[in-house]
Nucleic acid binder design. Structure first.
Lengths: 122, 122, 122, 122
DNA sequence: GTGGTCTAGACCACC
DNA sequence: GTGGTCTAGACCACT
């Protein structure tokens, strides 16, 4: 079962987002080893070169690093993971706020909507 | 300038969502007239029948109604508009909560993230 | 404003049914005078010959009669009117019973349905 | 042998009424499979799209549902079927009552007419 | 094979 | 002119 991709963005970017999301969601422990590129590529149903590019990009953020001849590992530096997670949360939050502000909610209304949804869901 | 559509959902559903969103965002005043089907279809770059189907579906929600031989109008009943807007806000809020909960935020953390984003944005 | 006719029966029959219905509904007093054929024809939007034929047929039932040189009158004989009304009621009732029996209602169910509808409507 | 349609209502509505009527009359068992759209369309003598629209509308009532790539099925939920049947019976009953009330029958007269017709018919 | 969608184009009723 | 319906035919996704 391959992953699904939209056509409005390059596949390697979608790979990056998905993999980073899995890391910051806790799917991998800090310091643990990633699957080999070829395996990840097969799982995702993409060309290994595409997966390679995505992982190289992710590596630039410091959230993963490579041991030559061994494989890729998640950083043990939880600071980095937390920072990226915070950035992601901030983006999600800003997007959410923008979308409901467009519907006329003011700031109090937004906080209230979140509180109510939490009470109902919890 | 045609609208853009993703291929994971039928076009007529995407038309419905977009038009309803425009209505509840206040792009049309309650009681005001919609553009003719054929014009909307041309603007969106779809077949008039597809737009017709989308509008007929929307009409079932009560947010618009038809005057035969005249045109389609936004309901003057602001209750209906508000209810649909509230449903939409609720859905957006729940989606947001689910996505950040998946990253490990607890309820207090979510409210805090929203508060901070509001302060920063305001 | 002409009357409306369906295509599955001759117009003169539909005229007969409608006019007899108006008589037995009490739209005309027993002994009262009908409008002239030409006027009735114009009202119904049909050819006077067609209306003439309808009225001649109705006359055979005895519910109306002609005074030569004067016009057509509703019979003063309320027996005849009552009998035709009873026939009409019986037909309506049988049709009703047949249609709901086809849905699986038994005789008690039918009487019950009528009772409930009367209570709700009254 | 095509079905017959009147021209005072859209064909797709007449299709809906007829098919729903067949379902609530017990022509199809709960959970049984409907004929394919194309076959139903041919039987009725209409375009497959017209039949498709009728069935999609019916599906909104919950009395049938679709298995993609397989076919359409009657709901196993006899509650829904019963509710729709009851609505239909109520409508028929009210129409009947209205038509004979217009002829001057009072409520006792209506019940009496139904009783007599049942005795005669049974 | 099934249902679902979309386009194209025609015709109708209403105003 | 407006919306509403219907047909014809193509293509897709699912099984």
């Amino acid at each position: 079962m391959s992953w699904s991709f939209s056509n409005d963005k390059p596949i390697f970017q979608q790979l990056e987002e998905r993999i980073v999301l899995e890391i910051i969601s806790g799917r991998y422990e800090p310091g643990s080893k990633l699957e080999p590129v070829r395996e990840l590529a097969m799982t995702a149903g993409v060309n290994p070169n595409t997966m390679q590019r995505a992982l190289a990009d992710i590596e630039n953020t410091g959230i993963i690093y490579t041991k030559r001849g061994d494989g890729r590992y998640i950083t043990e530096n939880t600071e980095i993971i937390n920072e990226i997670r915070n950035r992601y949360v901030l983006k999600k939050t800003e997007d959410f706020i923008a979308s409901v502000k467009a519907l006329g909610l003011d700031e109090d209304g937004i906080v209230k909507a979140v509180r109510e949804a939490l009470e109902q869901g919890g």
